[in-house]
Design a protein around this nucleic acid. Sequence first.
DNA 1: GTCCGGGATG
DNA 2: CATCCCGGAC
Length: 375
Amino acid sequence: MIKQPAMQPNRLPGVVHDPATLKEPFSLALLGWFAKAARDLPWRHTTDAYRIWVSEVMLQQTQVKTVVGYYQPFIDLFPTITDLAAATEERVLRAWEGLGYYRRARGLHQAAGRLVEMGYHNLPPDPAVLALLPGMGEYTRNAVLSQAYRLPLPIVEANSQRVLARLLGVDDDPARGPVRKWLWQASAALVSQHDPGAFNQALMELGSLICTPTKPGCLVCPARPWCAAAASGSPEAIPRKSPRPAVTRVEEVALVVRQGDRWLFARRPASASRWAGLWEFPHREILAGSTGEATLAGLMNDLFGLAAPSLLLGTVRHSITRYQVAMAAYLLELPDTPVPCLPDHDAHAWLHAQQVATTPLSAPQRRLWQLVNRG
DNA sequence: GTCCGGGATG
DNA sequence: CATCCCGGAC
């Protein structure tokens, strides 16, 4: 057996730097730039670990611009971990409505509960304790601890990954395991010991504002003197991006059932893969070989055991992951209804319009509700 | 209309 | 390694 040498990713030809030799000059330039160029974001006015945690979880897979509209209202509703732990999951999900990836909200809520059970009133500066919490991966943990407690922990997420890959000339898919591990080591070698929180924020801010995916602003980049990708002449070629899976089109029918001034909603169970815990109008996919009419009739029969005329309200379109869904909604008015059977849901309720306003729905279901109100 | 970007988890 | 989500850019 031959021992494997330490993993080295493919590097761009020409001058590429060792992370260790870059540390001082790069860190100085980056922090200097950040002091001038940093955006004024709501979560940059606090060192409270809980608030930083909330912002970091919201920012997972979500653009800054979107999070800005959610952060402060969420903090106003749940100012501390204790408040969050005491809230119902439904209220937390309602505050999260529209942000997507609802597992994040459920995880945040559960994590708050566990911390309070353990006797904490905030996140402790202890990576091992944080690692026990749902939704707390290595990135989020280190981002929070470096910002709130100045622990010199590295980060790698999409922005910093792109910045580091370009700076160090990594000519490999950085998402692949060994390359990603190498980038984590590079990030650890570079992170400022004096102000790790600002350094990590600066790395991401640079990726967000200057070192962008398609048109990097190398002419105004503070890291230009050391950047292998800028020297190569086509920095946008790094990192190599893997192709998206093909989009699958899906058609559905939804049943909007009205009884007087109340509407039938059902709750998706905690075990649902998507939109767990959110409420919705009953709906069903039109399977290949079937028709909208047949699917609608089947849904109506399964729910109420009846066949009744219904009126087409309109169609709601949305995209989720690799699916593009068109949902045709039908209105059904029922005078007096026995409790329906709702497969794939763990609860149902007849809600007044005012209650619907405080009930968590997915984005397409909220749009369907708006359609119902206008039509 | 279609494409793009973005961490955690089974 | 596939899956969650949405808004905004194009």
